[in-house]
Design a protein around this nucleic acid. Sequence first.
DNA 1: GCTGTAAGCATACGCCGTAAGCTAAACCGT
DNA 2: ACGGTTTAGCTTACGGCGTATGCTTACAGC
Lengths: 219, 219
Amino acid sequence: MAETRTPLSRDRVIDAALALADERGVKALSMRNLAEELGVKAMSLYNHVANKDDVLDAITDAVMREIAAPAADAEWKAQVREIAISAHETLLRHPWVVGLGARQRPGPGLMRYGDSLLGCFRNAGFSKELTYHAYHVIEGYILGYTTQVLNFRAVDTTQLGDIMDRFSRGDFADAFPHFTEHAIQHIEPVPGQEDLNGYELGLDLILAGLEQLRVSGSR
Amino acid sequence: MAETRTPLSRDRVIDAALALADERGVKALSMRNLAEELGVKAMSLYNHVANKDDVLDAITDAVMREIAAPAADAEWKAQVREIAISAHETLLRHPWVVGLGARQRPGPGLMRYGDSLLGCFRNAGFSKELTYHAYHVIEGYILGYTTQVLNFRAVDTTQLGDIMDRFSRGDFADAFPHFTEHAIQHIEPVPGQEDLNGYELGLDLILAGLEQLRVSGSR
DNA sequence: GCTGTAAGCATACGCCGTAAGCTAAACCGT
DNA sequence: ACGGTTTAGCTTACGGCGTATGCTTACAGC
C-alpha cells in the first residue's frame, strides 16, 4: 500500500556515507551516489548536512569511536600498546580514513581517543612536556605505519604485478640492490618473516624508549 | 614579430606542475590550470603525459630526489638520522606530497631514496629480516610525524581559531581534560617547549631501539 | 614540393559540489 | 476545521573536473 519510506535524518545520512565509503571506497562517496543509496536526490541531503566536508568530518569521527579504550588498571605501556593496536586495526578496517587527512575540527570521537592516550602518559607520571612529545611520536608512528600498509595494499590491488615482475627479474638490481632486495621480500615473503609483526616491533621499541625518558626525566 | 613560444615537452609540463602544486596547492593542479600556466590548452598536455596520474607520479618522484643522501663514511645512526631529517624537511617544503598517497609505481627518485636508507641498515650489519622491518618502522615514523605537522598547519591556516577559543575557554575540560591540556600546549607554547624537537626526540629513540636489536640480534 | 607525422586545438561527455527556487506535505495555534 | 508557516524533497542550472575523439596546422625527410 502506502509506500511510506522512513524519512532522512542526519544519522541516516552519516551511516549510509560510512557504509558507502567502506564498501565502494571514498572515491565513490559523492553526494549523488550517497543520495541514490538512500533513495533520494542529491540536494535533499543538504537538509540534513551542511556540505560534503561535514559528511567527511562525521564519518571520520565515527571511525575514531571504534578505537578501544584501554583497561584502566593496566600498566601504562600495556595501555598505550592496546590503544595503538586497536587504532591500527581500526584504520585498516576503514582504509579511506587516513587518505582524508585531518578533518577541520576535532570531533568528540577524536577527542575521546586523544584524551585516553594522553591520559595514559599523564597518569604514569610523564611530565606535561614529555607527554606532549610522546603523544606526537606515538600518533605519528600509528598514522604513518598504517598509511604505509594501506598504500602497499592499494598498489597491488590496482593491477600492475608487472612492476613486481621487473623487480623479480632484477631490472633495478644494479642501480638499487637494496631496494630490489626489499621489494622481493614484499613479493615473496620468506616463511617466518611475517611471524614477527613489524608494527608491534616498532611500537614496543618506541614504548621502551619512552619508558627510559619517563624514569630519567625531569623533562 | 614571430611570437614563437618554446614548445612543450614532458619536462616542461612536469616542472610547471611541480611549481603550480607548490605555489597554489595540489587542489589547484588541474589539467586546465596547468595548461594555462604553460600558455596552452588542456588537451595539448596529453601529447606529453599519459594522464593526470602520470603527472602526479612524476612530481612526487621529483620531490623524492630532493632528499639528501647520507655521508658515506658516517656511522649508521648518523646516516639514517640525516636521511630522516632531510626527508622530513623535504616533505614539509612540498606539503601536498603526503596527501597524494603512494603513487602507483615507485619511480627512480623513490628507489634511490629507499635504496640509500636500506643500505644504511645492511651496511651496518642488520640482517635482511631486521632491515625489512627497520625500514618500515623508520619510514612509517617519518611519514606519519610529518603528516601530523602538515595537518596541524593546514587546520590553523584554514580560519577557525574559534575552535581554539573553545579549548582556551575550557569548553571540553570536563569531558576531555588531557586533550584540552594538549590543545592548549599547541595554542600557547610555553617558552622552551619547542626547544626540544619532538621529531628528533622520537627519531633518536627509534634509532637507539634499532641499535639494540642490531647488537642483540641473530634475527 | 609532397607527404607523413606530431603538436596543438575545439568540442563534447559524463562526472563532481552546490546555489536557487519550486512544490507538497506536515504541523501549528486558533 | 482551517489558514499559515515551516520543512523535506525535487528540479534545474552553473562552473569546475578528467579525458575521448577528431580536426588543423606546422614541420621533417625524401
